[in-house]
Amino acid sequence: MNTTAQVLEKNKERILEKWMQNQLSDAALRDDLMTNDELQRQSREMLDGLLRAVSKGNYDNIYDTEFEQVTDTLRDISITRARQGFSPRETGAYVLSLKQAVIEVLVEQRKDDTSMLYQEIMQLNNLLDNLSILTFETFIKGREEVILRQTDEISEISTPVIRVWDGILALPIIGTLDSARTQVVMENLLQEIVNTGSNIAILDISGVPAVDSLVAQHLIKTVSATRLMGAECIISGIRAEIAQTIVHLGIDLSNIKTKASLASALHLAFSMTNLEVRRTERNKGLKLMR
């Protein structure tokens, strides 16, 4: 009687063929993301590793050294697929369709020994389920990395410091203000104050969906840091509902200059720097020209 490993080894090509068929027949397979040749090469590598590990008789612990190659390849595949935008279903189907192929082949080979077949199926089922869990774990980790990187990028690009006038900076904040974001806002703002020698910074919170006591604390910190540098800070874009929450929560903003709109904040900034903006009399000029 042949051992399971021997049976599988002997029928390796058939398993691979069936596995490829299973994968390719899946309507959801994204051939736009990967060529068939590539898939075939990847699958063969994976199957080779798996059979080598199984030939050692280990069906239980996929964290043992003989599975290292298999798990490494699998992690690689999952991470790559997560980054390329494969769906969880497509990624999971990779191992699950292998299970199907292996079991189909075993059923063919063990027609006359059902108790042996039963035992083998149980073992392989268990093994491939574990590998499938590993696939998902790695896939999710890959997605999380993508999310983390995007979060970093968003917080970088979403805090532009605008020079609205000589000596006056404006910083529109869009989205929620958490502590990591506050850090970036502060760093960008203070550096720009140094670079431009500005005396006044306007923090516009029109784009902040809600202000709770934590967000208020972050705003107060930013204002305090700006003052330590020797510049003054005005907070603008306070909508009616934000004013209501601030008062209801008992947040004290009395030490901070606040304005309803960016326009009125700019107006205040002008008067603080002794600037005056006036409409020029143009009509006289026009008459003269006629």
Binding site: Q183, M186, E187, L190, Q191, I193, V194, K221, S224, A225, T226, R227, L228, M229, G230
Partner: peptide, 18 residues
């Protein structure tokens, strides 16, 4: 007090010293 560095200002605020 003049010329405080941005990193120093951020740290002081976090420390609780304004």
């Amino acid at each position: 007090v003049v010329g405080m560095q941005p990193a120093v200002a951020i740290t002081l605020v976090e420390l609780g010293l304004t």
